[in-house]
Design a protein around this nucleic acid. Structure first.
Lengths: 326, 326
DNA sequence: TTGTAGGCGTTATCAA
DNA sequence: TTGATAACGCCTACAA
């Protein structure tokens, strides 16, 4: 490896001069500058980033901690964030937790180790006591004391879903989602507001009934058997709001397998925007959230955290994306 | 930040002793060890990783350079690799090139900067002169002089596709893929072997004709208009092999929109394994490649590179995944 | 305009 | 069994 010393020796100047040239700081005699630059180019010298990190005690790396990078929405979000942070010369480290608490803790610990400057955290686990106020963390879709967070307006999304179904004639509503957002769970993510908004609005609309089904966490894709049973138990249901597009998909498939037509007999709305489908069938109707907006908000929050500036929580708008299942 | 010096001072010993305790190296009197450990715990001391990197001149980070992390197969691959490298205490940095040459060059330059120890490279650009032999790079699906590479057995995949279509009665074959793999392109990726294997086999099978259509690179999803034209121009076609599942999807949709039934009138096979579809329609038939196998091969190659060991090129088997489009 | 030297937080070598 | 010290490569006062 060629170091700043090597260049200095060859150029017959002190290392400070080399430093001044590569960083374009201080004052250097133009002639010297040119000569040094030429030698730098000849030798192919590039300053060692680790040494710079050492000095600043900053890695210029941010960890993106998520359950699984193959979930399409996370991929979209990661894509936007990486693109934005590239402009800030901040790199993104992917960290898949597989929902495992221990892995999450290890990833968070990278902050103490100075391995990363900040953390973008997507988790469903109960780790409030691991994320101490003041840590350079941005949480998505989940509130922790003292940690800035970014989320979609899930509550409005729930309302929107109820309105759309109602507008299209549904009167027997059903919500289906996972237990992390359950009424009885002690974990309360922002995502639970999808259900709450939906139920609140259904009540206002005075629909005949509103059922909520919740399944154990970890089952990202609800099991077909469970769905089948729900359908069987509730033959009168004509409008379903699913907590995600993936769940909506499972529900629609099972409905059709059991002789119900979508949207004729039952209308279904998912959540995320219906983009996750390289799809040969009908397009799913969905409450959409924008990776671009969210990515921008997270990027801004991360940069502010790194610069020790105050960060405010941010809630971003959602929209209805009409497909063919309503 | 609490440093090794702070601990040493508090413990009334030299920093070397603290170092020995945290690394469990050298010899330390048991009593001292216990006492020091207690102080470490009390102070919440954790060794600064940047300082360690400084000393070893190693970051324990690998860059995963890809066109776009929302492509499902890349996501799957990244997932496997991250999981494996986690066990080696090596982190993965996501780098989206968006197929831009300049970004790829910048990412490759992170090796010189010591920002990453190695690079996993997925590219369609002509950058042979940027990846010099000996650089700690592992290339996927693309050969570069002096750079170890990993790929699926694309040629066999092409043969498999031809065989499956033939077996199911197709006699008028068509291949559709992008130009990076084109006969006339000067860029030759391993992926082009899908077409070559397909065409070779079709000739052996003496089918009536084999057409190959190729569209400009960058169009990951071929445009519907182009597909429509191809279909219109070739009404006799009864078997199509698409270079990817995404392209197969576009083709099938357009076929059905134009009154052709799949698989009754035309059979279609894609490439990647048909897993990328959270799908409401028929499952796509596809030549599959295994992210697990490929991930393992890449991880091994990366670790060997970091340890300056010789790495051999690796070709991994593909398989036929039957869906409902053949 | 330039060079010298100190320091960032470790680990490793060498004496004691 | 220990501690002082010299790296690792860079930036930045401070002095010249």
């Amino acid at each position: 490896m060629v170091t700043i010393k090597d260049v200095a020796k060859r150029a017959g100047v002190g290392i400070a001069t080399i430093s001044r040239v590569i960083n374009n700081t201080g004052s250097v005699k133009p002639a010297t500058k040119v000569r040094v630059q030429k030698i730098i180019d000849e030798m192919g010298y590039q300053p060692n980033d680790i040494a710079r990190q050492m000095l600043k005690q900053k890695s210029n790396i941010v960890a993106f901690v998520q359950p699984n990078n193959t979930h399409f929405f996370f991929s979209e979000l990661l894509y936007e964030i990486e693109k934005l942070l590239y402009e800030d010369n901040v790199k993104v480290m992917v960290c898949n937790s597989s929902e495992e608490l221990e892995k999450e803790i290890e990833f968070i610990n990278m902050l103490q180790l100075n391995r990363v400057d900040a953390l973008i955290l997507l988790t469903n686990n109960e780790i409030q006591d691991k994320v101490k106020p003041g840590m350079p963390i941005v949480s998505f879709d989940r509130r922790f004391d003292g940690i800035p967070f970014v989320a979609s307006d899930n509550y409005s999304g729930g309302i929107m879903a109820a309105d759309e179904l109602y507008k299209n004639g549904c009167r027997n509503m059903l919500f289906i989602g996972d237990d992390a957002q359950g009424e009885h769970s002690n974990i309360q993510t922002e995502v639970s507001k999808r259900r709450i908004g939906f139920v609140d609005r259904c009540k206002e609309l005075r629909v005949n009934e509103v059922l909520t089904y919740e399944y154990p966490l970890g089952d990202y894709l609800i099991s077909p058997n469970r769905v089948k049973q729900i359908i069987k138990d509730n033959p009168q249901t004509d409008g379903i709001f699913a907590i995600s597009d993936a769940v909506a998909l499972a529900v629609i498939k099972e409905l059709e397998k059991n002789g119900k037509k979508v949207p004729e007999d039952v209308k279904v709305i998912g959540f995320d925007g219906g983009r996750s489908f390289l799809n040969l069938g009908k397009r799913i109707s969905s409450i959409g959230q924008s990776p671009k907006l969210i990515g921008k908000a997270i990027r801004d929050a991360v940069i502010k955290q790194i610069n020790n500036q105050k960060v405010n929580d941010i809630i971003l708008p959602v929209y209805f994306s009409k497909g063919e299942t309503v």
